[in-house]
Computed example of a mutant assay.
Amino acid sequence: MDFFNHIKTVISIILGLSIGCLLNGTVKFIQHPGRTKPYWVHLLWVFYLFLLMIHFWWWEYNLRDVRMWTFTEYIFIIMYIILYFTSCQLLYPADVKDYGDNYKNYFFSRKKWLFLLLIVVFLIDIFDTLIKGHEYLEKLMPVYAIRMISHISLLGIFAFLKTKRSSLYGAMVLFFILFELYFIFSKFYND
C-alpha cells in the first residue's frame, strides 16, 4: 500500500467517526422527541460542520500529489482531523442534563469552545493547504483568502460576544453555510 492510501485510510476512519457522531446526535431528536429540546442554531452548526467535513474529505484527495512525506506532516494531518472529531463531540455531548436538557442552553455555554476550536481548524487549514503546494494555493485564491479572513474574524468576535440573540448566531452560521457551498461549487464545478 502506498503512503497516500495509508493516510487516506486514517483520514477516513476518524472522519467517519466524526460524521457518525453528528448523525447519531441528530437522529436522537427523532428517536426520543421528548427527551431533549433541539435548538435550530445548534442544528445549523451541526449541518455546517457536516458540510465542512465532507468538503475536507474531498479536498484531502489532493494530498495524493504530495510526493515526500515526513512524520511531522503525517502527525499534523492526524491532529487536524482530530480537531474535527473534537468539534463534533463538542456539538453532541453524551447528555445535556446539566443544561436543562436543552441544546440552546448547552450551545451558549459552550460556544466559546466551539468557535475557538473552529478558529484553530481554519488556521491549520492554511498550513494544510500550503502542504499541497503554492500552485494549489493560487488556484483557490481569492475566495480562499476571503473565506479564511471572514470566518476567523467572525468566529473570534462571536466567541466573546455576550448576547444570546439567536438571530445573530443564526445569520452567522447561515453565512458560513452559503459561503461554503459557494466555495465548493466555485472550485469544483467551475473548471
Rank of each mutant, 00 (worst) to 15 (best):
K139P: 07
L154Y: 02
F175N: 01
C21A: 08
E138T: 09
M79Y: 05
F85I: 10
E60F: 08
N102P: 05
P93V: 03
K104M: 02
N24G: 02
M53I: 15
V121T: 02
S166P: 06
L114P: 06
W45R: 09
G170N: 06
V120R: 01
G156R: 08
R110N: 13
Y106G: 11
F179E: 01
D95E: 08
Q31V: 14
L123Q: 05
Y169V: 10
T72K: 04
W113A: 11
P142M: 13
K8D: 01
D128F: 10
V46K: 07
F185E: 02
M141V: 15
T163A: 04
S150F: 04
L91P: 04
A159V: 07
L63M: 10
L83G: 05
T72G: 05
I152G: 04
Q89M: 09
F175M: 13
I152M: 14
K132Y: 12
F158A: 09
T72C: 09
I82E: 01
I119E: 01
S167V: 14
A145C: 07
G100W: 14
Q89F: 15
K139T: 08
I119H: 00
F47D: 05
V46T: 07
Y74P: 02
F122K: 10
F158Q: 03
G170T: 00
F71Q: 04
R165K: 11
I152Y: 02
A171M: 10
W45C: 14
I14G: 03
V120F: 12
D65E: 11
I152D: 07
F71S: 08
L123K: 02
A171N: 07
I119F: 03
T129N: 03
A171S: 04
I11Y: 05
F188L: 11
F160L: 09
W57V: 15
W69P: 06
W58P: 06
F4I: 12
S186E: 00
A171V: 14
S109I: 11
F47A: 13
I126T: 03
Y74V: 14
I157K: 00
D65V: 09
R64N: 14
Y169N: 06
W45V: 15
D101V: 14
Y189V: 09
V46S: 07
T129Y: 08
T26K: 11
L178D: 00
K112V: 14
L117A: 03
D2W: 05
F185W: 13
V66W: 03
I119Y: 01
W58R: 11
N102Y: 11
H55K: 06
L117N: 01
M1W: 13
V41F: 13
E135T: 03
E138D: 04
I81G: 06
S12K: 03
K37G: 03
F3K: 01
